[in-house]
């Protein structure tokens, strides 16, 4: 579905991407992993035809430079932070992007409802929470039913509850057979969503691996630490056990699953209203 060959991008003297090559099969979910400046965002922007670049980028057999509009019709894009016009109302924003993606307004309303945003049409975008904004971005990305969804750190600005909601939406996207290419800083997110991880470093593709190869289970895998008062400890453990979340032997406050699973378990609500902020 996505074929990238010798992708190179320079900003002046800085080489942001250097001869990166890889393929993504239809229906596959691939994560881009790397520190700040590794080239993840640049790669995604080249894919969208937003940056001039060397090498070739093809989506569904179409060249991203020469057939940019057709390529972008096949890609739904979710940015790191929703860059909507804050003054627009949710309904108007969705209608605007529905026109650009040649989607009927009725279908757009269905997508909005599926994103859990029905009833928020009259709200201004700036009044939405971070999680709701990202779900709106996901809704926009699925307008026109593109086969590929590209996401640039879609949960990086969200709290645990927001991340859990968005990750669940992304799982649904995967189940619907979309090809997903996303960048992330969160191992638990990558483990939950990706079939394969491309490790970028200094603009070079240095490794391709599965999430299990990168983070062997029980050995440096994603862990979350939950700080709770002693008085709530037993109650928290009960809730976590009921949610099927494993607590590591001997380390009673260090938990194996990702923060999104923790948030979904309801432990935060069970022990203390503001405990979500303690999840790390």
């Amino acid at each position: 579905m996505i074929t990238i060959r010798d992708l190179t991008k320079r900003f002046g003297r800085v080489c942001a991407l250097s001869e990166v090559s890889f393929d993504v099969e239809a229906g596959e979910a691939v994560a881009l992993w790397g520190g700040n400046g590794a080239g993840k965002t640049t790669l995604l922007r080249c894919l969208l035809g937003a940056l001039r670049h060397g090498g070739s980028v093809e989506v569904d057999g179409l060249d991203a430079r020469r057939q940019g509009k057709a390529v972008r019709a096949r890609i739904g894009y979710v940015p790191q932070e929703l860059a909507f016009h804050d003054d627009m109302r949710v309904g108007a924003a969705l209608a605007f992007f529905a026109r650009l993606r040649v989607e009927s307004l009725g279908r757009a309303a269905e997508i909005l409802a599926r994103a859990g945003l029905a009833g928020h049409e009259r709200k201004r975008v700036r009044d939405l929470s971070g999680g709701m904004k990202q779900r709106l971005a996901l809704a926009v990305a699925t307008l026109g039913d593109p086969p590929v969804v590209v996401m640039d750190e879609p949960t990086s600005n969200l709290d645990a509850a927001g991340r859990a909601q968005v990750v669940e939406s992304l799982r649904e996207l995967r189940r619907s057979g979309k090809t997903v290419l996303f960048s992330s800083h969160r191992p638990e997110e990558v483990r939950a969503l990706a079939d394969r991880v491309l490790v970028l470093d200094g603009g070079r593709l240095v490794r391709t691996a599965t999430p299990d190869e990168l983070w062997p289970s029980g050995d440096g895998g994603p862990r979350s630490t939950l700080h709770i008062p002693d008085s709530d400890r037993e109650r928290a453990l009960e809730v976590l056990a009921a949610a099927g979340i494993e607590v590591l032997d001997g380390v009673r406050d260090e938990l194996a699953p990702g923060a999104d699973q923790l948030a979904r378990s309801g432990v935060c609500e069970a022990v203390r209203g503001d405990a979500q902020g303690a999840i790390q």
Binding site: A50, G68, K69, P79, E81, F84, R101
Partner: peptide, 14 residues
């Protein structure tokens, strides 16, 4: 500057 342009040109538009 607001970051909205990248989002607009990421849509299927010329």
């Amino acid at each position: 500057e607001r970051g909205t342009l990248i989002y607009l040109v990421a849509q299927p538009v010329s």
